[in-house]
Simulated scan of single mutants.
Amino acid sequence: MRLRRCGPDAVLVELESLAEVAAARTALAAANLPGLVDLVPAARTVLASFTPGSPGPRLVPGVLERADLTAPPEVTAGEVVLPVVYGGPDLDLVASTAGLSVEDTIALHAGATYTVAFCGFAPGFAYLTGLPDPLCQPRLDTPRTRVPAGSVGVAGEFTGIYPRSSPGGWRLLARLADDVDPLFDATRNPAALLSPGDRVRFEARP
């Protein structure tokens, strides 16, 4: 673990794994640090930002020294069930690469419970961990110039949903059902439907 100051009012915690990121974020959130404004997890870091002049940044090292970063955090977040329609353009490719039938690929993806590790790339885009090993596959060799909003894909150890139309290279398995709330709505509080720590399940629809 390495700590880096980001200006006078923020600390970047560099860690070795997604599990350590989750444990560090949980420990910092539970510490009631004075002036804490936000905790922003990423693949191998957590950024803790504070109000100007707060003593919070000086207390971060002590909190993390006392925390067990090897222990998975207790789950206190809610569970979000997202209805999806399988049949994405890369479903056959993912099934073939995994050595599975299309039906078994769908069952494997929909049968897992995922956790939001962090958000990024686009507002509302959540990187979900918990992807079964056979579905952990590389990005496409040639990214698409346009991925439709609501597309559900896999890339590496993650699965995720494109909140809006954008370029992208994830292998696409499905799309969100039409009646699902927007993944990001700036007029809503919170604006993002999925937040770090949330549990997510996909529900297959015809």
Score class of each variant (00 low, 15 high):
residue 61 P to V: 10
residue 182 P to A: 06
residue 10 A to F: 03
residue 148 P to K: 03
residue 75 V to S: 13
residue 118 F to S: 07
residue 188 R to L: 08
residue 28 L to D: 09
residue 85 V to N: 01
residue 78 G to R: 09
residue 81 V to P: 01
residue 83 P to F: 10
residue 185 D to V: 06
residue 169 G to E: 03
residue 107 A to F: 00
residue 39 L to Y: 08
residue 92 D to E: 13
residue 130 G to E: 04
residue 167 P to Q: 04
residue 51 T to R: 15
residue 166 S to G: 07
residue 192 A to G: 02
residue 84 V to H: 06
residue 21 V to E: 09
residue 8 P to N: 12
residue 115 T to M: 10
residue 163 P to N: 03
residue 86 Y to P: 05
residue 50 F to G: 14
residue 10 A to C: 08
residue 193 L to Y: 12
residue 76 T to L: 13
residue 69 L to A: 08
residue 186 A to C: 07
residue 160 G to E: 02
residue 117 A to T: 07
residue 29 A to C: 09
residue 101 S to A: 03
residue 56 G to M: 05
residue 95 A to Q: 04
residue 152 V to M: 04
residue 68 D to F: 11
residue 35 G to Q: 02
residue 165 S to R: 13
residue 157 E to N: 13
residue 192 A to F: 11
residue 142 T to G: 07
residue 116 V to C: 05
residue 110 A to F: 10
residue 165 S to T: 15
residue 38 D to P: 12
residue 184 F to T: 05
residue 114 Y to N: 05
residue 79 E to V: 11
residue 142 T to A: 13
residue 50 F to K: 07
residue 198 D to R: 10
residue 71 A to I: 01
residue 131 L to D: 08
residue 87 G to P: 09
residue 55 P to S: 09
residue 13 V to G: 08
residue 34 P to M: 03
residue 149 A to R: 14
residue 168 G to Y: 05
residue 128 L to F: 05
residue 92 D to Y: 00
residue 106 I to N: 04
residue 40 V to Q: 12
residue 85 V to D: 08
residue 114 Y to Q: 08
residue 116 V to R: 05
residue 8 P to R: 13
residue 28 L to E: 06
residue 104 D to V: 01
residue 53 G to F: 00
residue 129 T to H: 00
residue 155 A to M: 10
residue 127 Y to C: 05
residue 116 V to S: 01
residue 55 P to L: 06
residue 15 L to I: 01
residue 15 L to D: 03
residue 17 S to R: 01
residue 205 R to N: 01
residue 194 L to D: 00
residue 75 V to H: 14
residue 51 T to W: 03
residue 147 V to C: 02
residue 1 M to L: 14
residue 116 V to P: 07
residue 31 A to T: 00
residue 140 L to Q: 00
residue 123 P to M: 08
residue 129 T to L: 11
residue 30 A to S: 15
residue 18 L to R: 12
residue 15 L to R: 02
residue 158 F to Y: 15
